[in-house]
């Protein structure tokens, strides 16, 4: 595993995460994230080929709920949270493309 994190990697990641960074921030983050990844390289030396990945600490399965309607929130309360609302809906600036 390589830890040579490049500036353009950080720029791409920032774009994916919807964050904009100044040139200075880009430099600083490249260095700081590089350090963390460097530290993570100690894992790269392990042979974990036959180890199963654990995404979750406990082995619960089939946790479900009954298909029974519960009260929804009051619309006025919901829309009161919104930065902008019109006609009972949340308003946003124009959407540039359809969902992927």
């Amino acid at each position: 595993m390589s830890s040579s994190l490049r500036r353009e990697d950080v720029a791409k990641v920032a774009q994916l995460a919807r964050l904009s960074l100044s040139d200075d921030e880009l430099d600083k983050f490249t260095e700081q994230l590089g350090q963390v990844l460097e530290h993570a390289n100690d894992m790269g030396t392990l042979n974990l080929e036959n180890v199963v990945a654990t995404a979750h600490p406990f082995g619960l399965i089939n946790v479900v709920r009954d298909d029974v309607v519960r009260p929804s929130l009051d619309r006025s309360e919901v829309l009161a949270m919104a930065p902008d609302a019109r006609d009972g809906r949340f308003a946003v600036p124009r959407i540039m493309g359809e969902a992927p």
């Binding site: 809906r89 949340f90 308003a91 600036p93 493309g97």
Partner: peptide, 11 residues
């Protein structure tokens, strides 16, 4: 969607 100047969302 194209040319609209704002969108409204219903969840």
């Amino acid at each position: 969607i194209h040319g609209a100047d704002r969108s409204l969302v219903d969840y």
